[in-house]
Design a protein around this nucleic acid. Structure first.
Lengths: 141, 141
DNA sequence: TTATAGATGCAAGCGTATTGCATGTAGTAT
DNA sequence: ATACTACATGCAATACGCTTGCATCTATAA
């Protein structure tokens, strides 16, 4: 659920990317759902929007989006990448072992931990990835 | 650096796995180094130990190890899996963007965060994965 | 409207990971 | 020590994610 309403076309032009139908629709996907998408999901979504795009194209789209900082690449213990908007406030994911649901988690205050690591070990931390696995509310029954 | 000294053969037998040369050597790899290994690395290591093992076999070895709880599968933003001992005390990884060095990080106290999430959202968290990315000490210069 | 840099489709190709089947071997019983 | 059996391995085929080269198409700007 992304409350901001973007003009996908403008957003693409701001990053010097041509506003092609496939890219506009992909952008719209990311803004309308908070489920990190893999290439197959995106491709399917595009087809439903009457835009048929080759897998290679979809791979290229997510790669350029990521490179331009629009999206970011994440891994949820699958042997493929997923992508989600990069400008969402810093958050993490919870993945249900049973049903696979992905839920956003925020307010983790990892920054404090990063600061401590920097002081202790001298590592310059730029990014982090944090995922939780377990059982969601309904799968606990 | 793992200070405990295991008898790899016994350890395998305890898990009802046959102590074949390839498995014993793989086990030894995991206990002698703290670098999470991918299949290629393991295969190369085995060859250096005069044990030639097919890639399929190495994949099967890490999968059975992981299934039996000896190792665990991790992802470091590459399109492949790595494996490391499962019984190491809870820790995380730092990966240098520049040179690729992997460093262990511990004492992060994620448990407190997990407890909070459980109370707030009712999610039952069983595992987590946390990785940091940035520049290591020598690459900062 | 046209020109052109950039995007796409298609097919080939690479690397990781899995699987079926025949063969080899560790562990066990004799 | 020997033979048996269940399990492990090698090999080849296959699946899948992802990338790339090249010809074609198109969004953008002149």
């Amino acid at each position: 659920m992304n409350t901001r309403q973007h003009n996908c076309k403008e957003e693409l032009q701001e990053t010097e990317l041509r506003a092609t139908p496939a890219r506009i629709a992909a952008m719209r996907y990311f803004e309308q759902t908070d489920k990190p998408a893999d290439v197959q999901m995106l491709k399917t979504y595009l087809h439903k929007q009457k835009i048929k795009a080759d897998s290679a194209t979809v791979f290229r789209i997510v790669n350029t989006f990521t490179q331009k900082g629009l999206t970011k690449q994440i891994q949820l213990n699958e042997n493929k990448f997923r992508y989600e908007l990069a400008d969402k406030i810093d958050h993490h994911h919870f993945i249900c072992d049973n049903c696979g649901t992905i839920e956003d988690i925020s307010d983790c205050n990892i920054e404090a931990i990063e600061k401590e690591i920097n002081q202790k070990k001298g590592l310059l931390i730029k990014r982090h990835r944090l995922e939780f696995f377990g059982l969601c509310k309904s799968c606990q029954r």
